[in-house]
């Protein structure tokens, strides 16, 4: 694999990571901590939304994020032909 292709692969990888980590930050630190007061004004059933994000929602998003990462990374690997057999 030549150096330019390698560089391109790495850049694509980093951009994908950055997008996922942005979501990771938004649901945990954002919805769960920084904007919790504002979100608590919204209610869904017995839950205040900010409280729900902090104790439930963020965790569900975390799980989804890892599976999205696995799917996306495998696809990038294949398109650059660096996947394992």
């Amino acid at each position: 694999m030549d150096a330019t292709k390698r560089k391109l692969y790495w850049r694509k990888n980093l951009r994908f990571l950055l997008i996922l980590l942005t979501f990771w930050f938004l649901v945990s630190y954002g919805c769960g901590i920084l904007w919790v007061e504002q979100l608590n004004a919204i209610r869904i059933g017995g839950f205040k939304l900010g409280f729900w994000f902090a104790q439930q929602g963020a965790i569900y998003v975390f799980v989804v994020l890892i599976f999205v990462y696995v799917y996306g990374m495998n696809k990038i690997d294949r398109s650059f032909d660096v996947n394992e057999e």
Binding site: L20, I33, Q55, A58, L65, I66, Y69
Partner: peptide, 24 residues
């Protein structure tokens, strides 16, 4: 109460970092 979220968020959120940034 709500303040206890630090354990829930901290211990699960760290796993995302581990999976994306270190493990592979």
């Amino acid at each position: 109460g709500y303040q206890g979220s630090q354990y829930l968020l901290g211990w699960t959120g760290g796993f995302v970092l581990l999976a994306l940034l270190l493990a592979p």
